Simulated scan of single mutants.
Amino acid sequence: MPEYGKLVILINPRGKRYLRRVVEGQDMHGNDGIIAMSDIAAADFGTEVRSTKGVPYRVLEPTIHDLVRGVKRQTQVIYPKDIGYICMRLGVGPGRTIVEAGSGSGSLTLALSWFAGPTGRIYTHEAREEFMKLARRNLDWAGLGENVTLIHRDIAEGFDVTGADALFLDVRTPWEYLDNAVKAVKSGAMLGFLLPTVAQVSQLLHGLERGPFDEIEVSEILVRRWKPVADRLRPEDRMIAHTGFLVFARHQERSADWDSFRKLGTRERKQEAARQERLGLGGDGEAGGVDDADFVE
């Protein structure tokens, strides 16, 4: 059953969800009548309580999905569909040290704290003090954050961490901070980035190809729900589509010996020659014209 001071989810028969804290004497008032907080505190999770009008409400324990969606926000937050993939790609978990910037309203910070657990450490950087304070309030509200250190700092001055296992940047111009990012993580660490536009992704890719990075990935995550009717199964009319581009790369020094063993096809040789030309390293003369064959998978 919910303890006083903890958060609960209340759901009415129409599917309306309420995220509330169990506080003695603070009964819930609404169109369905009044639900006594003492009834909520005495109920087991998964059971029902009734309002003064006899309307049943289910009492459920909030998940991390509920908490992320419930944060107070002054900034654009990262969606749960993206957060799950970010945490998987960065390997967030017990005993891991993760660096983040900027904190914003703290939706990702909250999830990082939950996934890392008591033995993990999260260091989140935010240049604007009002956002840092909001992130701390959201962590306290969710009952998380004991493993989080909030740092009021412009990452142009560097990160306050070294030897981290992974790093995530949600900033406008991440390519400007790649040198500092490399100093903050260990060799082989994963780095992630969130960007809203194609132009920003392109600029970041130019920055990544100049540094010690490999295994670069660009992706977006779309979620289309289906109507759960067994004999008339079909997609819902609306979907959660593009919310941002996710870019991932591994901190990895390149070596001539490694590159000499890579097997490149025609397209890859042209791309590598173009990359070397952009970097002023000279190409092998195969970065010339492009024909239709270059687009055959």
Rank of each mutant, 00 (worst) to 15 (best):
Y79P: 01
V229W: 11
V247R: 00
L279K: 12
D170S: 09
R137E: 15
H125C: 01
P174L: 06
F248M: 07
F115W: 10
L167G: 02
V201Y: 07
K227Q: 12
P174F: 03
V92E: 08
A230N: 11
L204I: 09
E126I: 00
V23Q: 12
D170R: 04
T97W: 02
D32T: 14
V198G: 10
E253R: 15
W258N: 14
L246P: 04
I240W: 05
A230K: 15
A241S: 06
W141T: 07
H242W: 05
R225H: 14
N138K: 00
A156M: 12
K183C: 11
V148D: 08
V185T: 12
R136W: 04
V99L: 05
G211Y: 02
R234E: 03
Y4G: 04
R153A: 11
H29V: 14
A184W: 01
S107Q: 04
L167S: 09
L108I: 09
L246F: 08
R73S: 08
K16T: 15
L204H: 10
T97K: 10
T243W: 09
G46W: 00
F295K: 07
G54E: 07
V49T: 06
A273T: 13
I34Y: 02
I11Y: 03
G33I: 04
K263E: 15
P94V: 10
D66V: 04
R210D: 15
G282S: 11
H206P: 02
H125I: 11
T52P: 03
V23I: 14
G5T: 07
Q203C: 07
F115P: 05
I240P: 01
R121H: 13
G25F: 01
D291K: 09
E297R: 12
L169I: 00
M1F: 04
T162Y: 05
Y4S: 03
L144I: 09
R89T: 12
S260G: 10
I83L: 08
L167N: 05
V59K: 04
E24Y: 08
D154I: 03
G104E: 08
A249W: 03
V171T: 03
N180S: 15
A43T: 02
K183Q: 15
R153Q: 15
F45I: 01
A287F: 06
D170W: 03
D44A: 13
P174K: 00
G145M: 00
L222A: 15
S113H: 00
Q203R: 15
K6R: 09
F248R: 01
D291I: 13
I240M: 09
V198R: 11
F168T: 06
G207Q: 02
R20H: 09
A101G: 02
P56R: 01
L144W: 01
I35M: 02
F193S: 13
R225E: 14
T149D: 10
V218Q: 04
T47F: 05
L205R: 07
Y177W: 12
G33C: 08
G283E: 05
D154S: 14
S202M: 11
S107R: 06
A241N: 03
A287H: 11
E236W: 06
